[in-house]
Amino acid sequence: MTGLTPVSKETGRVSVSEQVKFTNVEPGTELAQESYQVTRLSLVKYCGASGDFNVIHWNERIAKSVGLPNVIAHGMFTMAEAGRYVTDWAGDQAELVEFGVRFSSPVVVPDDDAGATIEISGKIEEKLDGNRVVLALTARSSESKVLTRARAVVRLP
C-alpha cells in the first residue's frame, strides 16, 4: 500500500489515477459505452435518497392505471447515471460546469431480478476556452432513446 496515493477505505479504489487532461482531449473522440442496471430495489432506494416518492416509481398497479406500461424509473435516476458516466470519465480533479438533459422516453423497470439496463455513451463535442470540454451524451434503454439533448460541460485540469 503506497502512502502517497489516496485510496478509499471503503472501496479500495485509487481515486486520482488516469486523470484526463484538457490538452489530451480531441473533439470528435467517442467514449466507451457503459451499462447501468436499474431494478425495483434501485428505485425504492432512490425514492428514499431523493425524497421523490411519486407512486409511478414503485407501484405497478397505479403506474398501469395512469397509462404507463409498468413502473418507470425516475428521470433523475437516469440523469444521475449519465452524471456518473461524466464524472467517471472526467476524474476527481475536473469540475462540472453545466449538465442538462431532456427526458424523451421512460425507462420501464419490470418486476424481476435483472430490471432494466441504461446504456450510456458519449462523444467529445468541442473544446472551449477556460479548459472547458463539451460532452454530448446518448442514453438508451430497451432500444429507446431515454435522454436527448444530453450534454455536459466539464473544466479539466
Binding site: 489516496p6 478509499s8 481515486s15 434501485s42 432506494k45 432512490y46 428514499g48 447515471e81 464524472t87 467517471d88
Partner: peptide, 17 residues
Amino acid sequence: FADAIGDPNPVFRDPAV
C-alpha cells in the same frame, strides 16, 4: 444518495479522497 444511484466513487464518501 451515491449508494442509491449505485456510484461507488470514494470522492462522495471519503473525506481524505
